[in-house]
Computed example of a mutant assay.
Amino acid sequence: MGNFEEKKAKYLKLTDEKILKYNNYSNDNRPQMELIDAMNYSLKGGKRIRPMLVYAFCEALGGNIDNAVAPACAVEMIHTSAFIHDDLPALDNDDIRRDKEASHKKFGDALAILAGDALSVLPFEVIADAPELTADQKILIISVLANSVGRDGMIGGQVIDIESRKRDDVTEEEIMNMYRCKKGQLIAVSCVIGAICAEGTNENLRAAAEFGLRVGLSYQIIDDILDAEEGKPADTASIVTLHGIDKAREMANKITAEALEWIDNIDDNGFLKELTEYLLDRTK
């Protein structure tokens, strides 16, 4: 466990040290200082699970972690842009994020929207400008990341979520599809990007995608269980509202076991296995 905690701390520190450097002040952007402040405010803090998966897959497949820094920070920026927008009154209307005021409470709706917008495009500039990556790696990373965010990914999943709130007949299949789009796709692509940074084989990329998708599904189910145990009202259909906490936990355990099978053929998979169990057993 010591090695796991040390590596987790290393990945967390690496992201925290690097991510704000991609959004610094300059003489040219002084008029946008308030926007930069709003972007950086939301970038600070968090579990950094997605960057950890980028680093972990890169290293597990024998890659140089320096090659993964820009993509890992880019993925975290995308994640941050999503929750800035999700917290807005028009969507989830949450006032707290990462144990502090949500962006729109701190800066107002207009600047929060623009900060989220800026953090949804800056990642692609960061990847394109990364000197450690080849042109082919950049193209592939940008392609898979864009797909995981747009119509068929995170944004599409949010639309499915909103639409499901109008219904009382949402099926398990529909809920799992919402989870796949809203949460699973970006977690899966984090794993795939790590494999790309290590110049992994097509087989490695497939394993990363299948593993990550299942980790994302399990992660969302555990999120719903924790919300239910804390007594938070459910405003949308979930596996917990459909089947109850015990059945939901059984499903999370099963999906996690399936995820682990996909990394059996990766020799250096110790951290990935421990991280997967950590996410399944977390209490917050």
Rank of each mutant, 00 (worst) to 15 (best):
I196P: 11
M154D: 10
R151M: 12
V126Q: 10
S238H: 08
A248L: 05
S81H: 15
M178R: 10
H104I: 12
D223C: 03
T80M: 10
V192F: 10
A209G: 15
D109C: 07
F211Y: 15
P123A: 08
A115V: 08
Y11M: 11
D16S: 11
C197V: 12
C181T: 00
E210K: 15
D268F: 05
N40Y: 09
A115H: 03
L111Y: 04
G244T: 07
H243I: 00
E277D: 13
L145H: 11
S148P: 08
N64F: 07
E17L: 08
A248T: 03
F211V: 07
D92I: 02
I49Y: 03
W262P: 00
K44D: 00
D66P: 06
V144P: 05
I263A: 11
K100H: 12
E101K: 15
R167I: 01
L186S: 02
A68V: 10
R214P: 00
N67A: 15
V144C: 13
T256S: 14
C58V: 04
E210I: 13
E173S: 14
E274F: 06
A74V: 10
D168P: 00
A237N: 08
V240C: 06
I225V: 15
A68G: 11
F211C: 13
G194N: 07
V215F: 03
L145A: 05
N177E: 14
D86H: 05
A60K: 04
L133M: 07
N64G: 09
I49V: 15
H85G: 02
S81M: 15
P89W: 03
D117Y: 05
D87H: 03
K8R: 14
E174L: 11
N253S: 04
D86I: 07
V149Q: 09
M77T: 08
G231S: 02
R48M: 05
E76Q: 11
T134N: 01
E6S: 14
N253R: 14
I96H: 03
A207H: 12
D168T: 04
K7E: 11
T276P: 13
A38F: 06
L122P: 02
A130N: 07
V159Q: 10
I141E: 05
R97A: 06
A195H: 09
F83R: 00
G153C: 12
L35Q: 08
G216C: 07
M154W: 09
I65H: 01
I222N: 01
R98E: 04
E34F: 06
P131Q: 06
K44N: 02
M52F: 02
K105C: 14
N177I: 02
E250H: 05
I162L: 15
R249Y: 12
F57G: 02
M39W: 06
K166A: 12
K284V: 09
N269M: 09
H243A: 11
I127W: 04
E163M: 13
V69H: 08
Y55D: 03
V126N: 09
Q32C: 14
L133W: 01
N253K: 15
F107K: 04
R214V: 02
D66S: 15
D235Y: 14
S26F: 04
D152V: 11
G150Q: 14
P233G: 01
K105N: 13
G157M: 08
A128Q: 08
L119I: 12
E174Y: 07
E101H: 13
G116Y: 04
A9T: 13
K100F: 10
M52E: 02
V189P: 00
D268C: 13
D264K: 13
E173D: 15
I266H: 13
